[in-house]
Simulated assay, not measured.
Amino acid sequence: MIRVLLADDEPMMRAGARAILSADQEIEVVAEAADGRQAVEMVHRHQPDVALLDVQMPLLDGLDATSEILRTSSRTAVIIFTTFSNDDYISRALSNGASGFLLKSGDPRELIAGVHAVADGAAYLSPEAAHRVIRGLSLENMSRKSAAREQAARLSSRERVVLGLLGAGLSNAQIARRLDLVEGTVKTHVSSILRRLAVGNRVQAAIIAHEADLITAAD
């Protein structure tokens, strides 16, 4: 069962998200919060697998709440679930460690798919957010590619393959099946990759995988 915290200052939005998630028998909404500070407290109390946070909330916005949650809880992954899709929100969300970015105006199936993906250790961006991330990367493509390749060169050949599969959106379990490894070994590789690349989460590592052109090799 995937345990989810919903945080939004609008009760109707929480009710709508709860109704969508409740349609999936593998998802349970275990707590709700009306502001960012309460969301952080609820994460500490309930230890959900996924925290679904709005951006604009009182006391503490969703982006700062993301940093606080990930600083104090190793169990909970964060998805930003918002009406706003500007580049600054997306960039700050990913920089602060969010594993997903979804738009409230998107297909309800994206919400369920995103929760499953993030709970399984993968990253998930709405199509519009993914497009904005890719467009942003292309603006400084050459210099970033060079830096990413230097970072990837720090890894072993096996770690580069794992990074490529991680960047392609595969979860630890999927990578293990693809490479005929036990999942614990993949988790060890991922931890080593994050440490050697000096990044804080899988999303940041996946960006490096794309910039270093490791995705084609992984496929």
Rank of each mutant, 00 (worst) to 15 (best):
D61S: 03
T216S: 13
D9G: 01
I69M: 05
A123V: 14
R92H: 09
A65G: 06
R92A: 03
R92W: 06
A39Y: 06
A39N: 07
S157W: 07
S91M: 13
Y89D: 09
L21A: 01
N141A: 15
A119F: 04
S192Q: 09
L179H: 04
I215F: 04
R135G: 12
Y124L: 07
V162P: 04
R92L: 08
R154Y: 00
V50T: 01
F101V: 09
F81V: 07
D8P: 00
N86E: 14
S138Y: 11
A130G: 09
H116S: 04
G121L: 08
G106A: 15
R196N: 14
H46Y: 14
A113T: 10
T82D: 01
I207Y: 04
F84C: 07
N201V: 09
N172V: 14
A176R: 02
V43H: 06
G100Y: 08
T72R: 15
G121S: 01
Q174K: 15
A198M: 11
Q174D: 11
D180T: 13
P48E: 02
R71Y: 01
T72E: 15
E183D: 13
L63P: 03
Q38I: 04
M13W: 01
R92S: 04
V40E: 00
F84S: 10
Y124A: 05
Q151S: 13
D49M: 11
R71L: 07
A147K: 13
G100S: 00
T185E: 09
T66Y: 07
R135D: 14
G164H: 05
N141D: 14
A176Q: 04
G97I: 08
S143D: 11
A113S: 11
F84K: 13
E68R: 13
Q47R: 14
A51C: 04
A212K: 11
H210P: 03
R149P: 02
E26R: 15
L155T: 05
I112C: 06
E110Y: 11
E183K: 14
T185F: 11
M57D: 03
D35R: 06
E10Y: 11
I20K: 04
A39E: 07
M42T: 10
M57N: 05
R195G: 09
L70V: 08
G169C: 10
A168C: 05
D54S: 03
M42I: 01
R135T: 14
N86H: 14
L181S: 03
A31T: 05
L21Y: 02
E159H: 06
R149S: 12
A153T: 05
V118L: 06
T83S: 13
T66K: 00
R37H: 13
R154C: 03
Q204M: 00
R202C: 12
L59W: 12
L166K: 08
P58Q: 01
R75P: 00
G164Q: 06
G164R: 01
L194D: 01
Y124T: 10
V118P: 00
A34I: 03
L60W: 02
A217R: 15
S192K: 13
A122G: 02
I207G: 07
I27V: 01
A39L: 05
I134W: 09
L214W: 06
L166A: 00
S171K: 09
V30P: 08
I208Y: 03
V30M: 01
A217Y: 12
A113P: 08
A123C: 15
A147Q: 12
D64M: 12
H131A: 15
R37W: 11
G62Q: 05
R149I: 11
M1A: 12
